[in-house]
């Protein structure tokens, strides 16, 4: 069994130091990995990223993250990635990481993702440059996620998780105003997951949404935005597939293997 802790939208500001650390310090008892589903900061500043880094540095489990739209707000996303990386956090964007867990290989593929909407009501890559750029960005994120998930299959991961900030399905947006669904997610993410395969999808972004959903292809989706789960993190127990036995590999010194695509 693989125990996955996950939370998104923690929105830490410079006045948030220590808010989540007491709960995170218990992770060694309940989880094998902590996933952070974006919007880790409030304004996307490096100072706020340092607060996030202090909350998760030195935890007893590996920490894997994607950034969210708030983390891009100050145009400091690269510096934020570096600050978190220095604290031992694997920040994914169109990339993946493999974490050995109890003799199996857990693969996590991640992207921020973007909006655009859902089947029958989605934006198209047409018209003004800014509209085409909007849809193209969403498509690029989804394609990066699909590549990363396929690589995890090639690397014989017994369990694969797709980690995003934006939602792949409308199910987990239930509770949000219908009119803003196109700004909360894109079906392109779900299509990528269904095409490449995943055992679980984890996202945030939709504070008023619902926790549970599923893609058209049957991948279970969980919205772990902190306002939704109402806790410091949620925990999911996954059971590695018997059809994809783990191969013996030598873990890297950090306990994980990273691939950027």
């Amino acid at each position: 069994m693989i125990r996955v802790a996950a939370v998104g939208d923690i929105h830490l500001g410079e006045d948030s130091r220590g808010v989540l650390r007491p709960a995170f310090d218990t992770l060694g008892e309940s989880a094998d990995v902590l996933l952070l589903a974006g919007d880790l900061t409030r304004h996307g500043t490096v100072a706020e990223a340092r607060v996030v880094a202090e909350e998760v540095e030195g935890l007893p489990v590996p920490v894997v993250a994607v950034l969210g739209n708030h983390d891009y707000h100050d145009d400091a996303q690269h510096a934020i990635t570096e600050v978190l990386g220095d604290a031992g956090v694997e920040v994914l964007e169109g990339s993946s990481v493999v974490i050995p867990v109890q003799g199996t290989r857990l693969g996590i593929a991640g992207t921020k993702g973007f909006g655009g909407g859902f089947p029958g009501r989605s934006a198209g890559e047409f018209g003004e440059p800014v509209m085409k750029a909007f849809v193209r960005h969403s498509r690029d994120c989804a394609q990066g996620l699909e590549r990363a998930l396929r690589e995890l299959a090639d690397r014989e991961c017994t369990t694969r998780i797709a980690l995003t900030h934006f939602s792949p399905v409308p199910d987990t947006l239930a509770g949000e105003p219908l009119e803003i669904f196109p700004f909360l997610g894109s079906y392109l993410l779900a299509e990528a997951m269904d095409e490449a395969g995943a055992d679980l999808a984890v996202h945030g972004h939709a504070h008023l949404g619902a926790e549970h959903g599923v893609t058209p292809g049957g991948v279970r989706v969980r919205n772990v935005a902190q306002p939704v789960i109402g806790k410091a993190f949620a925990i999911y127990h996954l059971h590695p597939s018997a059809q994809k036995p783990a191969t013996a590999t030598q873990p890297s010194p950090t306990g994980s293997e990273r691939v950027r695509t």
Binding site: R3, V19, L20, P22, A23, T26, S30, D199, L200, R220, R222, Q226, P227, I229, G230, K231, A232, F233, A234, I235, Y236, H237, L238, H239
Partner: peptide, 14 residues
Amino acid sequence: VAGHAQPDRAEDLP
């Protein structure tokens, strides 16, 4: 106000 406590249960995904 969102809670900051650790969860008291896990969801099993068979």
